[in-house]
Design a protein around this nucleic acid. Structure first.
Length: 287
DNA sequence: CTTGAGCGG
């Protein structure tokens, strides 16, 4: 097997100081966040990403930039999978902002520049056969790329499968290929053609609500965008030529449903101007 | 019958 951990390990001898932390509990505060990671070494900057536009709720991930690369590496080893409240956080290298292709031995041309695209990698899948397991769902889509996250919805009361699931790919191109390849396909063990489209983003307000952010924002309009500001000094190589190996499942019955894959809308009203913007970056904590 | 949260600044 050729398992290359995408974000757990660095390509070659590259060093990075910037980490992305996933699966943060909604209730985790910036202070707690900082305290978890500062034990490894001095932090240059860290931040939990939040939707300050409306609710201020945590997106459930954040960034930690160490001053020293060895501390970043240490943090991955020591803090990845660390139980925090009801979750286990994931600590991995953040993607470098820019892409410097160093041609060492090879001439590389026409490399898609932003293949590391991060948005719209999450797919909504309906008409999943009720008998399917998570693994089967993954298997159904695994030929299109690395699946980084998956989920199958169950009925709240009965616990029975709803025939709706989600699959998140590492790259947008993989998700696009999966839509083209799987939308309208009747999977084995199923009777209806799958509906595969880019997932929308609901549940954010709900998450905020449960997190206790519902102070008084029903009519409040203070859009300003997502919290931000942090320094970056990592730049590196990422000659990702990951395989999109062909292993397309067969389409059955020739019964391909017409797809409307361009149905995305943003349920969250886009606010206007800037509102309350408080920073709150941690770091610069000397020894 | 679109979840929980995998990439900003």
């Amino acid at each position: 097997e050729s398992s290359s951990s995408p974000s757990s390990a660095l390509p070659d001898g590259e060093t990075r100081t910037n980490l992305i932390i996933n699966y943060l509990p909604q209730t985790l505060t910036d202070q707690e966040f900082y305290k978890i990671f500062v034990v490894v070494g001095p932090i240059k900057n860290c931040r939990i990403m939040k939707d300050l536009k409306q609710t201020g709720y945590s997106f459930g991930f954040g960034f930690v930039e160490y001053q020293k690369p060895e501390d970043a590496a240490k943090a991955i080893l020591q803090l990845n999978n660390l139980p925090v409240q009801h979750k286990r956080i994931k600590v991995s290298y953040a993607r470098p902002p820019g892409e410097d292709i160093k041609e060492t031995n090879l001439y590389i041309q026409n490399i898609p520049r932003k293949e590391t695209d991060s948005k719209e990698t999450n797919l909504y899948i309906a008409n999943v056969p009720r008998s399917y397991t998570l693994d089967q769902l993954e298997e159904l889509f695994s030929s299109y790329g690395q699946i980084v996250q998956k989920n199958l919805l169950k009925d709240k009361v009965t616990g029975l499968p709803r025939g709706v699931g989600f699959v998140r790919f590492d790259k947008k191109s993989q998700a696009e290929a999966a839509i083209v390849g799987m939308n309208g396909v009747v999977p084995e063990g199923g009777t209806e053609p799958l509906v595969v489209k880019v997932a929308e983003e609901h549940g954010k307000m709900k998450a905020a609500y449960y997190a206790g952010y519902h102070a008084g924002l029903s009519t409040t309009r203070g859009g300003g965008g997502v919290v931000s500001s942090q320094v970056v000094l990592s730049r590196g190589v990422e000659g990702d030529a990951s395989a999109t190996r062909p292993h397309p499942p067969r389409k059955q019955g020739g019964k391909i449903a017409p797809d409307r894959t361009a149905n995305r809308y943003n349920p969250i009203g886009s606010g206007g101007g800037y509102g309350g913007g408080y920073g709150g970056g941690y770091g610069s904590g000397g020894s």
